[in-house]
Each structure stands twice: as C-alpha cells, then as structure tokens.
Simulated assay, not measured.
Amino acid sequence: MLNYIKKSLALSTVITGEMATDDRQRLESLKNRLKAQFGVPVGVHMTGIPLAVSTLLTIFCYAMLQVSVWMLLFRLLGLPEFKVMMGVFLAAVVYCMVVMSTMFLTARGSLTGYKLHISAIALTGLMSIVYFIWTWISLLFSSVENYTPQITSLLGLVFFCLNIVWMNTSVFYRSIALTLHNRVWRKQLKMDKR
C-alpha cells in the first residue's frame, strides 16, 4: 500500500550503507544507479517541491488542532483562556522548527533526517486522528454550539491523508533519489578537495 514510501526508505538505507567507502569508482557507480532512479529529464522532483509540499501539509495538519488542544490544556490548568494564542504561537514555532529541520536534513540526503520527517508526520497524523475521534464523539454525546472543532478535525485528517498520498508517489520517490545522488556527489567533491 505504501510502496513508494517503503522503496524510498529502503533506497536511503542501502545508499547510506554503500556510501561508507572512499573508492571513487564505487561512488561513481552509486551516482549512476541513483540517476537511473530519478530519471534524466528535469521535472518537479528536481526542485525540492515534493519535500516542501509534504512539510506544508504536515504543518497544516498540525495547525488544525492547535486551538482546541490549547483551550483544553488551559482549562485543565485553570489558566486564563485569553492567553491561549500565546501557547498556540509558541508551540507552532517549536513545531515548525522541528519539521523544517527534518525537511532540510532529508533534502541533504540524510537517512536519519528522512526517518525523523516520517516520524513527525506519523505523530502529527496520530494526533489528528485522536482529535478527529474526540471531536466527533463529543458531537454525538453532548450538545455542541460551535462546529469549528469538527471542521478543523476533518481538515486535519484530510491534510494528513493528502500528505501520505503525496509521499507515496513516484515524484516524491524520485526526489529522494535525487537528494541521495547529491549527497554522494558532495562526498566526491570533499574527497577531491583533500
């Protein structure tokens, strides 16, 4: 079902293992194998757009549940609710820094960065699913005056699903192959400088 995501993780793992050499011929052969994976014609995968779209969808998914989560947290702690936006803002800044860091690490061909990016998406998706279930159960079993939580929970789930579908495309897979190719190339350049 998630074939391209599994393939890109497997490719990243194999390439990371095979890069642990200083043999120029093996590195060149590795680069050629990766060129075959991402294809020679220039396409959208060459621009970094696939990774940026994934990051934006992750941030949108995260943003949908923030106000409700912070309202609940402030009520539980007995804090004044007019300060909720401060909590939302601070959490958003930290979250964006984390997700952007994983995006930049992935763009540099880092297997760890890619795994962290997928983990951030999975954790955000899990929070979105829990939020969706909670809002719809509250709609069924209590009187609701405002349907905003149900709408935002549905939107968060849509953003999460779109992100999974997007990451499971050949375009995204080819962009990962390109980032790995560029990592091998940077290693070759460092070897040439020595």
Rank of each mutant, 00 (worst) to 15 (best):
S143E: 13
A20L: 06
S110G: 04
I133G: 09
V99A: 15
R24E: 13
E81A: 09
L154I: 10
V40G: 02
L56P: 01
K31F: 02
L157N: 13
A92N: 09
T102E: 07
L9M: 08
T106W: 01
V144I: 06
T135N: 08
V40S: 10
V53N: 00
V94P: 01
E81M: 05
T179W: 05
L9K: 09
A63R: 14
T55N: 06
L76A: 09
N163V: 04
A177D: 01
T13M: 03
A122G: 13
S101F: 07
G39P: 02
V14S: 12
L154E: 03
V158T: 07
N146I: 09
S8L: 11
V40L: 12
L139E: 03
A122Y: 10
T106I: 03
G39E: 03
I59F: 14
A36I: 12
M19A: 04
K115D: 00
T21E: 05
H117M: 13
I121G: 10
K190P: 01
M71L: 13
L178H: 04
Y173L: 07
G17E: 09
I59C: 06
G113M: 05
I5V: 15
L51C: 02
F38T: 07
I137V: 15
W166L: 14
W185K: 15
S119A: 15
I176A: 04
G17H: 06
T112L: 11
V40T: 14
V88G: 01
I121Y: 15
N32I: 14
A52Q: 04
F104W: 07
Y173G: 09
V99N: 10
R33C: 09
K193I: 10
L105P: 01
L162I: 06
H117E: 08
F132G: 00
T58V: 13
M100N: 11
L116N: 14
K193P: 00
V40Q: 11
L34G: 00
M100L: 11
Y114F: 11
S153L: 08
I176F: 03
R33I: 06
T135S: 15
F172G: 00
R33D: 11
L140K: 05
E28K: 11
I118N: 12
C161T: 15
S119F: 14
L178T: 00
M19R: 13
V42I: 10
Q66K: 10
R186F: 05
W166D: 03
L51R: 04
E81R: 07
H45A: 11
S128G: 14
Q66G: 13
Y4H: 12
F132P: 00
V53R: 02
V14C: 02
R186N: 14
T47C: 02
G87M: 10
D192W: 03
F104P: 02
R108Y: 08
T13L: 06
M71A: 11
W134D: 12
F38C: 10
P41A: 07
V42K: 11
T106N: 03
I133Q: 05
L139G: 00
F132H: 00
S143R: 07
L57A: 05
V144T: 08
T169N: 02
F82C: 00
L111N: 08
A92W: 05
